[in-house]
Every structure is written in C-alpha cells, then in structure tokens.
Amino acid sequence: MKLIQTYETGAGSSPWRLRKFVADYGVYIALAILLLAGALLTPKLYAVDTIAVVMRQASQLGIVAIGQTLILLVAGLDLSVSGVFIMTSVVMAEVGNGRDEMVIPAIATALALGGIVGLGNGWLVTKRRVPPFVATLGMLVLVKGATQAYTRGVPGGFVPEILGIVNRSWSFLSIPLILWLGLSAIFIFVLRGTAYGRRVYAVGSNIEAARLSGIPVDAIRISIYVLGSLFAVISGIVLTGYVLYVDRFIGSGLDLDSIAAAVVGGTAFTGGRGGLLGTIAGVLIIQILSTMVVLLGLDVEVQFIIKGLVILGAVTLYSVANADS
C-alpha cells in the first residue's frame, strides 16, 4: 500500500545497530582484551592454582551479583546484602552450633530470615514508596543492629565443620563455582525465556506502562527483592563455609562490588536493560583485575584505583550507547 510507505522513512537506519553492539557485546570484548593482557603481563594468571582462587572469589561475588542484577533490572538497588551476610553467618553458628546434622535447619533458617529481609525491602519500596537506596540502607543498619543485639557482640555456637565442603575443589572446579554458574544459568533462562522474566524487564523499563499492561508490578518487584536477599544468603553461606567462623566483617565490599559487576556487565541503573551473562563477565573482569594487580606486585590501593576507573569507564560507555535517539 502506497499510503503507508509515504510517511515511513528510515526505520532502522539510525545507528542503533552500532550502539546495540557496544551495549550488548562491549563487556565481552573488554573481558577478552583483559585475558589477553593477562597472558602477556601476568602469565601466572593462567596457573591452575590462580584460576582456582579467581574462580572461588568470583563465585562469592557472582552469587550476590545475580540478585543485585535482578534488583537493578527493576530499577532498584540492594545495599542490605552485607547485613544479610553477617546475619547468615551468625545463624549458621547459632543454629548449626557445630553439629553437622544441624546444617540443613541452619540453612533453612538463614533463607527464611533472608526472605523476610527481602520482603521488608520490597514492601518499603513498593507499598511505602521509599527510594530503594534509602530503604535498603535502612534495612542494612536494621539487620546489622538486630544481629549484634541478638549476639550481644559475641556470637555463640560454632559453624558446622561440614560447611567446609565449599572449599573442596577439583582442579579449578569448586562447589561455589558450580553454584554460581548453575544459578546464573537458571536465571538467565528465567529472564529470557519465561513470562516472569519478561515482566521483570517490563517493570524495570516502564513501570506505569507495565501496570497498564496488566502486570502485577508490586508483586514482581517484591519477589525480586526477596530473590536478591536469598542470593545474599547463599553467598553468605559460601563465605561462612570458607572461613568456618563468624566474621563481623564477612563479605565486606561485596555489596558495592556486586553493584559494580552488574553495571560493568551492562545492566542499567535505570532498570529494564542488561542481564546476567553480562554480569558474569563483569564479575570476572573485576576479579581478574584485582588478581592481576596482586600478581604484578602493585599496592592494594592500585586495585581500587583500577576498579574505580573500570566502573567509570563502563558506565560512560553505556550511557553513550544507550542514549535515547
């Protein structure tokens, strides 16, 4: 029909393909360049031992980062994860109390409490309309405080020995790594192939349009916050199993690193854009960079400088690539 052609000029002719390429594949290219640089500058990076260390650390970060990515996708943010780590660690010791048969009840308790934290975050953000930054910051302080009040500063009980199973490894393969990649695979599928995943993106992309499309936006957002906290619990269990005692500073830094990994991986702060494959690459970039700094014999402060530059570089690139045409 001629009528139609007269007013349609140039759909798809805009530079969307180039921008989309940068937005979609930039992080993998960056990772490849980093791996190449590693081969040239720090060949020890490719020693089996080093890979095992990198992968174990990447797993600890990666599991939290799954939750963080999901929350960022609905235009949220979770600062309460480090509170959940400490809570998990204390629960493992208090409920587990050094008895291997109590490890399952301990895990169940931690997951249940984590779920409540997530519900709280979700309720504050959706029903009370508290900005996610403030809601989860408040929750962080609340959970940390409650944990300390409960233990009076000195956690009782011992972490069951069996939790040390997370340290077992076969070459570079380990239980945390399997957990990380397995959970990532499941949620990559959930986001891409299920109705739930579509709705998550829709809510993050345009919440009012999502509501008018009949999507239960509050339920979706609350469920995402619950998932985020559950991932923090799982990460907390892995971290606790790694040290096998209750550490007051357990997983410190992973909260912000998990946000950084997701953002470097292409997940937008504004929601609705990004995904878990990118986050995996983001986690690896952060972890490999940190390891390379150590292998190069540089000061640990350099780690932070480089990490900061990488985050800022990535965010700059994405904001250019994703700028509305």
Binding site: Y201, S205, G272
Partner: peptide, 9 residues
C-alpha cells in the same frame, strides 16, 4: 512514551 511503550525493550 510514558504510559504505552517500553522504549528500551
């Protein structure tokens, strides 16, 4: 743009 479309999707 505000209520109908998911522009990033």
């Amino acid at each position: 743009k505000r209520h109908g479309l998911f522009t990033a999707l």
